[in-house]
Structures are given as structure tokens and as C-alpha cells.
Amino acid sequence: MKLVVVSAGLSVPSSTRLLADRLAAATGRQADVDVEVVELRELAVEIAQNLTNGFPGRRLAAAIDAVTSADGLIVVTPVFSASYSGLFKSFFDVIDKDALTGMPVLIAATGGTARHSLVLDHALRPLFAHLRAVVVPTGVYAASEDWGAEGLDGRIERAAGELAALMRGLSATRRPAPDAFTVVPFAEQLAAMTEGSAN
């Protein structure tokens, strides 16, 4: 299965990327996954250009293709002004609104204080619910004091286990976008039912 990790960290090294890597590793211990990481920092210019001209650059197009063709996503953003970063939101703004329908998603965020932990339920979860993704019950927030402290590892493992289970259960049954459904005229349906009852 293909697991794509979207990291919106801006610095190098980045606590956001560190959390993303730990979540991916934990998921890999519970499911057979091939991991691909999308670093939004490297795509910032192309994302801005796509927002203004409507066309993705080569690297952005590859990132969008990776995300939309994944069996599961891990998305991690730093907290800015009590919400996800503008770069994070802009990336998902350039993805077709139906492309993540049924996609298993693990949401996570990093911040300087535990007071911003509500970003998971007040910003990230509504965003992916709007995109009709399937968000795992456990989100992971890591404040500065959480690194090396008791509790973070347990949350990571629990969330990763939920994502692995969803990926196994949903990857083969993701519903296609509405325009991919085949509409069968009622007359044909009726003929098929009549033929079946005659046998």
C-alpha cells in the first residue's frame, strides 16, 4: 500500500517533519506500506503560482498525483495563528475537491504550547471532513514540551494503528468520483430484472 506524508514544516530541521517521520514509521510497523514524503516548503512557489494561474508546475503536479493516488495520508502542519499554516491550506486548495473522497487520513500538528492542541478538532478535522476523507479518530498534537515526554509515543502508535487498519479496510473499496459512475437507464435495469426472474 502507498502511504503519502504531507509535511508543512518551514524550518530545517523541522519538528513538523520529525513528527511526520515518527508517524510514518509507526504506521510502517503495523502495515506493509511504501512511504513517500511531500515537503510543502519545497513547493511554496509553485503552489502560489497555481493559485494565481490555475496550472500546477511539474513538481507540484507530481505531488498532487502522489497524494490523490495514495492508499492513505499523514498530514502534519505547524500551528500559525491558532490554525493550520497558510501553505498547508493552499496546497489542499489546489487539489480537486473530490480527489480525497474516502481517503484514510491521519491528522497531526506541532506547536509551541499545548494550548493550541484544539487545532486538530477545530481546523484540521473539519477541513478533511469537507473533502470527504475518512479521518482516523486519534489526532496527534506535539507541543514543545511533548518531545521526550511520556505520552507522545502512545498517541503516535494509537493513531498509526488506526490509520493502518483504515488503509487495509478502505484502500480496495474507495468510491470513485461521481463522474466515474456508470448510469444505467431504468429500461435496461428492468429488462435485466425481468430476464433474471424468467430463469
Rank of each mutant, 00 (worst) to 15 (best):
G57P: 01
S69N: 09
A62Y: 06
G72H: 05
I74M: 09
D146C: 12
H116W: 04
A63V: 10
D65E: 10
V67Q: 15
L106A: 14
Y84H: 04
T77V: 13
I64F: 01
F128K: 00
F91E: 12
R115I: 15
V67E: 12
A114M: 09
D71H: 08
L51S: 13
G139P: 02
V134G: 02
S90F: 13
P78D: 04
P56N: 14
V75T: 14
E145R: 02
A129R: 07
M103D: 01
M103Y: 06
P104A: 02
A70Y: 01
A129Q: 11
N50C: 15
A66S: 15
L120Y: 00
D98H: 12
T113N: 11
T68P: 03
L120I: 09
G86N: 10
G102M: 01
L73T: 00
S117C: 07
A142Q: 02
A142M: 08
D65I: 05
G86E: 11
G111H: 04
G111P: 02
M103G: 06
P56A: 05
R115H: 10
S117H: 05
P137V: 14
A123V: 05
Q49F: 09
T138P: 08
L118I: 05
V79F: 02
T110K: 07
D98I: 09
S81V: 09
L60W: 14
A82R: 08
F80C: 01
S144R: 14
F92Q: 15
A66K: 11
Y141V: 03
T101C: 12
V134N: 10
V135F: 03
F92E: 13
V94Y: 15
F128R: 00
L127G: 03
I64Q: 15
Y84G: 04
A108W: 07
T138M: 10
Y84V: 03
R59A: 15
S69Q: 13
G139M: 04
L60M: 10
H130V: 13
T52E: 14
S69H: 10
N50Y: 15
A66M: 04
V105N: 13
A109V: 07
Q49I: 14
S90E: 06
V135R: 01
F91M: 08
G72P: 00
M103I: 03
N50I: 02
G57Y: 08
G86L: 04
V67P: 10
A123G: 01
D96I: 08
D93I: 14
V105Y: 09
P78R: 01
S90D: 00
A114R: 06
F91G: 07
A143F: 03
L60F: 13
